[in-house]
């Protein structure tokens, strides 16, 4: 990432780029534990390879590489469910991967700004919201995995369609309102 901005880095308490690296390492550790316990070493190698992508992103200032890394992390998490990896590690791994992606994006946005007013406060607010969203997401995901509700096939299809339509509406709304 571009880290030429004087407001980012040693002068401030929080460095989003360093924190995104920290989250990436945590994501790698949790995915590693999950796949390691099942002894699926090739997936472990893929997870480690994603770190290389981040190194490339940092060295060449290629922001889009972090997005590719996040997509790969999501695929790794989803694949884990098909490979009977314990869901807890996958959910935590994905949460930290999301944090890392978000913070990398924040770093990029901050680098566009010449001056950041109350940098520490600004970053603390962002990080707090990220933790709350991520934490809530993990709780809901774990709850969803542990609650077993029996639906008939018809209901299942209906709920599936409703969720797809609901999300489509939300996304359309965001795209329409964003300029």
């Amino acid at each position: 990432m571009t880290r030429t901005n004087s407001s980012i880095g040693s002068k401030t308490m929080y460095d989003p780029w360093l924190l995104s690296w920290l989250n990436l390492i945590l994501a790698t550790i949790f995915f590693g534990i999950g796949y390691g316990r099942q002894e699926i070493w090739y997936m472990l190698a893929i997870v480690c390879a994603i770190i290389l992508l981040w190194i490339v992103a940092g060295v060449r200032n290629w922001f889009w590489v972090t997005t590719v890394a996040f997509i790969l992390h999501t695929i790794v998490a989803a694949a884990g469910f098909f490979l009977s990896v314990e869901s807890f590690w996958l959910i935590l791994g994905l949460m930290f991967a999301l944090f890392a992606w978000d913070l990398a994006s924040l770093t990029q946005r901050l680098s566009c700004a010449g001056h950041i007013e109350s940098h520490n406060k600004f970053f603390a607010l962002h990080f707090r919201r990220l933790v709350v969203t991520g934490g809530l997401g993990v709780i809901l995901a774990v709850l969803a995995l542990n609650f077993n509700l029996q639906f008939s096939f018809g209901w299942l299809v209906l709920l599936g369609l409703l969720s797809v339509l609901g999300i489509s509406y939300a996304i359309r709304y965001i795209l329409r309102m964003s300029q």
Partner: peptide, 18 residues
């Protein structure tokens, strides 16, 4: 169900934007 469950994390992240 696990694959759908992890999408909740992303849905919440997206919903915060709205």
């Amino acid at each position: 169900n696990g694959v759908i469950a992890i999408s909740i994390l992303l849905i919440l992240y997206l919903a915060s934007g709205i």
